[in-house]
């Protein structure tokens, strides 16, 4: 499921004194099955961008094509767009409303007009994907669950629509390290298993650096940088200047290079650093 965005502009409150350009000539391509990370601080335009992909916001100008299907064209049926692109909002647990977990997750697939049997199958599958046991959880009220469980129910609610492209906006916001690692692990497994396109929006360089094949950095409504985590982290000075940090380990390798230590491999994770340092120490 490839996505092509061409010259996307979005202006809020056009023609009023509050006019703001939220997106400014954004063009990018995402290949089928890629794991993409989008980073940028609050107000950089990343939320506006992903809402376009789901058809929630119409562009002021520009075009978005999802697998040869122009979702920005006139008279596109929104259910068709939502079958293709699933969007999990920030703090998605705040959108839960049904009496039971299973019924809440079924809300999305039911809206797509699927029959009861298929819906149930989708719900079961989605719950398994986020690590919730169907039998014990299905009849529970979503409101008596813990914060982390609620969030998984909410994510399952989008997964049950079986979108080809899954977008998650800050899925780990507000979670503790354990909850964060669990969710990220599940997203990673999901991507491996279903081979669908995943777009992860995050503040955390460490998280996206670990998971994504390619990163897009947003700043002031523009696509400021793109490339593999390695290529993006190389621009650490620029990243810092727009209020984004690089992982500590990247800073370490930069500092070592500055000291004249001959690091050969490019380093993104702790494991990379360990192997490289062991090699250096061993060769001494």
């Amino acid at each position: 499921m490839s996505i092509t965005i061409e010259h996307l502009d979005h202006i809020y409150d056009k023609g009023t004194p509050y006019e703001t350009k939220a997106l400014d000539d954004v063009s990018l391509t995402i290949e089928t099955g890629e794991f993409i990370g989008i980073i940028g601080h609050t107000g950089s335009g990343k939320s506006t961008l992903i809402q376009h992909l789901n058809g929630l916001i119409k562009p002021s100008s520009g075009k978005i094509v999802v697998n040869d299907f122009d979702i920005t064209a006139e008279k596109v049926k929104m259910t068709d767009v939502r079958k293709k692109v699933g969007l999990v909002f920030q703090y998605p647990e705040y959108q839960l409303f049904e009496e039971t977990v299973a019924r809440d997750i079924a809300f999305g697939p039911e809206n797509l007009g699927l029959d009861a049997k298929t819906v149930e199958a989708h719900v079961k599958e989605a719950m398994a994907l986020v690590g919730l046991d169907y039998e014990t959880m299905k009849d529970k009220s979503p409101f008596e669950l813990s914060g982390g469980q609620k969030r998984r129910v909410a994510i399952a609610g989008v997964l049950a629509m079986k979108p080809d492209v899954l977008i998650l906006d800050e899925p780990t916001a507000g979670l503790d390290p354990k909850g964060r690692d669990e969710i990220l692990m599940q997203i990673k497994q999901l991507h491996r298993k279903n081979k669908n396109t995943v777009i992860l929006v995050s503040h955390s360089m460490e998280d996206v650096g670990k998971l994504a094949d390619r990163l897009f950095v947003m700043n002031k409504g523009q696509l400021a940088l793109s490339g593999t985590p390695l290529e993006v982290f190389r621009e650490s000075e620029f990243l810092e200047s727009i209020g984004l940090g690089v992982p500590q380990i990247v800073k370490l390798s930069e500092a070592l290079i500055k000291k004249g230590i001959a690091i050969e491999k490019e380093i993104v994770t702790v494991e990379d650093a360990k192997q490289e340092l062991l090699r250096l120490l061993g060769s001494k």
């Binding site: 699933g86 909002f89 809300f107």
Partner: peptide, 16 residues
């Protein structure tokens, strides 16, 4: 603001 957010989240789940 919250109403707008929840509305969008439910629309993303196909609500009309």
């Amino acid at each position: 603001e919250e109403t707008d957010k929840i509305m969008k989240a439910q629309m993303a789940r196909g609500a009309d």
